[in-house]
Design a protein around this nucleic acid. Sequence first.
DNA 1: CTCTTGGTTCGACTTTTTTGGAACAAGCCC
DNA 2: GGGCTTGTTCCAAAAAAGTCGAACCAAGAG
Lengths: 110, 110
Amino acid sequence: MGEVTEPALADVPVTAVLQALADPTRLRMVRTIADGGERLCGMLEEQLPKATRSHHLKVLREAGVTHTRVVGTGRYVSLRREELDRHFPGLLPAVLTAAEPAAAEKRAAV
Amino acid sequence: MGEVTEPALADVPVTAVLQALADPTRLRMVRTIADGGERLCGMLEEQLPKATRSHHLKVLREAGVTHTRVVGTGRYVSLRREELDRHFPGLLPAVLTAAEPAAAEKRAAV
DNA sequence: CTCTTGGTTCGACTTTTTTGGAACAAGCCC
DNA sequence: GGGCTTGTTCCAAAAAAGTCGAACCAAGAG
């Protein structure tokens, strides 16, 4: 029962993946998972209420970005790297590599 | 006057780029522009009303994805390939390369 | 069985996006 | 100047996303 359903990447449109990664919170989660290989759900973005966290993880899962392993009452989340890279070559690496714009101040009319 | 403003890619967060590309219509536009180098605004997604088209092009422009050259009353849109690849290595190519899920029918329980 | 823990689901609400009509602006041609 | 073509802006309505309390469920501990 505890099995979690994930889509076959062949059925996932790129836009869905992009969409999933286009949210700061989710991207942060993905990055955290990226270096660590697997993470217990509750260890991600602990600041936010669990309903919100659960929601974001669901979006990632349904976009085929993550895999969820159920262990007891816990969920271990990991990236579907190989598969992802087979279907969308270079996409995940490119996103993970991307640098953030060093917290630009309100940049008042230079 | 006629000059169109575009953001410096250093100020654009990846999520903004992903967001811009995460829309089917916009991605289609980007793909069209990709093979052709430059396109007159009105030659893109002609089915939709111009207000909508204009809106999508604005989103792409503000996400730093496209460059707009004004010629008379027309706007020629092109991709900011080099810049984009300098800031987000491999991202655009990966997105342009991505295959679409061959119009899956309602895939009734195979 | 009860309590706790880790997470999901429901429902409501807020914020963003998307969409597109209508009015407007600018360039071009006569 | 008019009239036509391109495209933007304004505005409002509709749809989609994000947020999160509260109720709920399943597994493990005692």
